[in-house]
Structure formats: C-alpha cells, structure tokens
C-alpha cells in the first residue's frame, strides 16, 4: 500500500471558530476498569452545581479508566476539595490551570478537516490536552494564552465566512437553579 505523504490542499470552508472562557483542565486515571470513582465525582460535582463544559472519558483499553474534564477557573477550588476526599486520593490526577477550548464548526464528519486541524497543532507544537467531536463541531483544549495563535494558524488551512462572529463570546450563560 502506498501512502501519499503530502498533497497541497485548498483551504476548507468552515462556518466559524469559537473560543471558550478560561477553564481548568483536570485529567484522572484509575488503574482498574471496574471503578466508579468518576461516577461518584460527577454526582458530587452536580450536587455542588459545578458545570462541566467539556468531558472526555474512556475505559476501552489498558484495563484502566481515563477521564478528563474542564471547569471554569472559579469552580476549580470546589473541584479540588472534592478530589482531596479520600475516595479519590488514589486517582492519578493532573491539572492544567489555564486552558481554553477552541471549537471549529461544522466538521461535516470530514477526515480532511480533522486531519488539517491536528496537523496544524502538531506543526506548531501546540498541545492538545484533549479533544472531542460533537454533533457538528470539533472542540480542542489547549493553553488559554495560545488561542489567538491557534486560530491564526488554523486560518492557514481553513477559510471563514467574511462576516463571521467574533471568536470570543460576548456573554456567558450560567445555570443558577433547576
């Protein structure tokens, strides 16, 4: 089988790019696949009304469970106090204090767009702490201070509509009661 190494591709049209507010990224690893720590943690976070704008969880392989999620920086102390509970103390925890989610939409389930995005991050040595596709978008967590640079580099492989919305939201929503 032959692999085509490089092919000049035209820019891919997308509808927009969006930045999140500053978030804290928390990764948890549990060495056993049959463990309910993440379920318990999610329940406690819900009880404290702490929103999780991003979550990625995997218990596929390696007989371990891996979860990572983001919370707003103001909610991080609350999360930390939960993580300090004894039941979570044996989790392998890694925290990145200031990340931002960059969201590109729509992805149209396209390998070409996904590949161009990943390639751009790799080319410029920009970390991808985590990533997930949604129904129409691809969301990637990287250093908060790198968001503008990432967007600029991604515009080398994607094209935005002329009157696209600002990357940064001018408002944020917060659920107070249910």
């Amino acid at each position: 089988m032959e692999i085509v190494l490089s092919k000049e591709s035209p820019k891919i049209s997308i509808g927009g790019i969006k930045f999140s507010e500053k978030l804290t990224h928390i990764s948890l690893v549990k060495d056993t696949a049959e463990d309910s720590s993440i379920d318990d943690l999610l329940r406690l976070l819900a009880k404290r009304r702490i929103n999780i704008p991003f979550l990625c969880h995997s218990s596929t392989l390696y007989a371990s469970q891996r979860s990572c999620f983001c919370v707003s920086c103001e909610n991080f102390p609350g999360v930390l106090s939960l993580l300090n509970f004894s039941s979570f103390s044996n989790l392998n925890i890694k925290v990145v204090p200031a990340v931002g989610t960059i969201t590109l939409f729509p992805h149209k389930n396209s390998f070409q767009l996904l590949g161009q995005i990943i390639q751009t991050f790799g080319k410029f040595n920009i970390p991808i702490y985590s990533m997930s596709s949604s129904i129409s978008a691809i969301a990637l967590n990287t250093d908060f201070t790198s968001l503008d640079m990432v967007a600029e580099n991604l515009q080398g492989v994607t094209s935005l509509p002329e009157n696209h919305a600002p990357f940064r939201q001018e408002f944020c929503l917060k659920e107070l009661h249910r």
Binding site: I52, F54, L55, C56, H57, S58, S59, T60, T101, T103, S132, S133, S134, I135, S136, A137, A139
Partner: peptide, 8 residues
C-alpha cells in the same frame, strides 16, 4: 461506557 465525548 466505552467512551464518552461531551462537547458543546
């Protein structure tokens, strides 16, 4: 749950 992806 083998994998969960929650975004947007």
């Amino acid at each position: 749950i083998i994998t969960a992806g929650c975004a947007g």
